[in-house]
Design a protein around this nucleic acid. Structure first.
Lengths: 344, 344
DNA sequence: CTGAAAGCGCTAACAC
DNA sequence: GTGTTAGCGCTTTCAG
């Protein structure tokens, strides 16, 4: 059943039917009702491809997932983000188009997406410091929103990010307030922008307490259980071992926990652990009280906001790129406290 | 730059250019070379929408992700699967279209996808026993491949699955061979087909050793760290506690491990743990020797195979639905052993 | 071997 | 208010 058939059945022209179905004002109310009833009855669905060709709008958003050849892992965070964005698209009648691209082929991929013209906009995932994709997309004239930011890029661009530096600054201050002086940072790969910001927040809090960061108490790498374990194991053997760990992921925190067990240390008594957890949020309930969580699992919400922002940009391009900075919520032993003010 | 422009530049008709670019045999080799060079030079990309409209093929595959309102979680496995499938699509020139659908709206969603006609086929995720989606898709005449199977569906359909029951049978037999007699099963939600099969494999191994399953040593639920912990904690307090745990996910296994620690038990000496791990495979290295892993992280490979199978079905529909059953690899203390034969 | 012409199903000027 | 008429950019008969 296509538009022409439907129109024939109704004794109307395709144009009128199209207008009635797309909510144009000039259609008589009676006709509209009649058309809508018929459309329902015959279970009519406009052909997407035809619509796209005619309007020049793809009615689809592209998500480009960079996949490193280095680390085989696909960030599990991504699933939650996608779910959030998907909700928004579904409501707005957009499709979500996923492209998995090896790190090395980013540029080619973006250009191809652009010229194939099957998306109206793009969500950029996993930005790195000074990420060249931002300038590229700007050049290509393809609307985009970055999930995260890229330090070092000065031209304004649209993004949605969690305030990573402030979250880590606060978490560090929290440990300092408990009296800790030797705090270890188990961070993600610092080429990734979010990890970079987390370290800055950590260092800012130390500086505010007149402490200088100890390189032996800082590691950056894949955020796995093994990373946390190995890092903690090594650090605990230092002449001046840390009394607290701040980790970038719940998995790393679980690794640290294991290292403590192995050394017969009691978490929360001998050593404290604070972790940022936007990754496997549902794991949080598995953490016993002494593990403090520095932020809620906000990835899904970030997905919704990215999508909403992008759709808005597409429907009515704003003069200046918008942006949103979500504040991490501090969760201490299961209870949630408000986010105090502070630097970005 | 569109086909017409390109043709004009070349002094050819759009028809010839189209044919040259699409590998039709009747084009003179010289012309083809010339056309291809020009296409590259002008960076020509055929407009996807137009191509789709003209051919009636969407050149896209839909992945429909059911999202339960019960459990807020998006299965992280999914990210790896998608990555695998994405590789295949990219090579074949297909787009990957993701749809996130609440459990309750599955049927409506599939019908809509069908009538909008923007995919040529569908991958079904997270099948349950007797899943009604299979019959529905069959009715709709939409090619599909199921990732997993649906117990109770007798009509043949295309699927790619890991041999879950055999994996769990072997893992159980492994523990039995070590002398364990009270083995606990910490399973996923048994409405999900994979969990059902895992339990069957577990019970089959017990039966073969003339043991009957003890309901107090079996739980099914969300596969989280908390689940493993709580289940193990409770079971360890039974008058006849288990001496081994078989879990359906690495997260659950980590929870069990925590429960052991809390009770001062030593893993691998007092209690053994075997876990199926297709979930967070990269965590496996973080597990110390006494945790045995019953299967490799094969999700990505499953993604590749599902995609390949579906594309093949679309390009040349086979008389009978194909299927693939991947065998899980047994990993013991870091070393990989071959999969012995056995029942399905 | 190459080209002209007719669509694919829809939208959007432009009449009436 | 409604209909007529061109396209959107490509593929695909059908002629030459």
């Amino acid at each position: 059943m296509n538009l022409k058939d439907l129109a024939q059945h109704l004794g109307l022209s395709p144009t009128t039917v199209s207008r009635a179905l797309n909510g144009f004002p000039e259609v008589a109310e009676a006709t509209r009702v009649r058309v809508e009833a018929a459309a329902r009855e015959y279970n009519y669905r406009p052909n997407t491809q035809a619509k796209r060709l005619a309007t020049g709008r793809a009615m689809a958003i592209g998500h480009v997932i960079p996949i490193s050849t280095q680390h085989e892992i696909v960030n599990p965070v991504f699933a939650d983000f996608i779910a959030g964005a998907g909700e928004v698209y579904a409501r707005a009648g957009y499709d979500m188009l996923l492209t998995i691209v090896p790190d090395a082929e980013q540029e080619r991929a973006y250009r191809e997406i652009r010229s194939k013209g099957n998306v109206d906009g793009i969500i950029v995932h996993g930005p790195r410091a000074g990420d060249p994709r931002i300038a590229l997309l700007e050049d290509l004239g393809l609307p985009f929103v970055v999930h995260g930011r890229a330090s070092g890029i000065t031209r304004p661009y649209a993004f949605v990010d969690v305030n990573n530096s402030r979250a880590f600054e606060r978490a560090t201050r929290f440990l300092l307030d408990l009296g800790h002086r030797r705090i270890a940072l188990v961070n993600g790969i610092e080429a990734m922008d979010f990890a970079l910001r987390r370290r800055r927040g950590f260092e800012r809090a130390l500086a505010a307490a007149d402490l200088s960061p100890d390189p032996r108490l800082m590691v950056a790498g894949e955020m796995t259980e093994a990373q946390g374990h190995d890092a903690a194991r090594a650090m605990l053997r230092l002449s001046a071992p840390p009394t607290a760990f701040l980790t970038s992921s719940l998995l790393s925190a679980m690794g640290v926990r294991r290292a403590l067990w192995e050394d017969g240390l009691v978490m929360g008594r001998d050593v404290s652990i604070v972790t940022h957890d936007d990754e496997l949020g549902y794991l949080r309930n598995g953490a016993e009280e002494p593990i403090f969580t520095a932020t809620r699992s906000s990835v899904r919400e970030a997905g919704r906001r990215c999508a909403t922002m992008l759709l808005r940009m597409i429907e009515s391009p704003p003069p200046e790129p918008a942006s949103e900075l979500l504040e991490a919520v501090l969760v201490v032993g299961g209870s949630t406290g408000p986010a105090p003010g502070g630097a970005t």
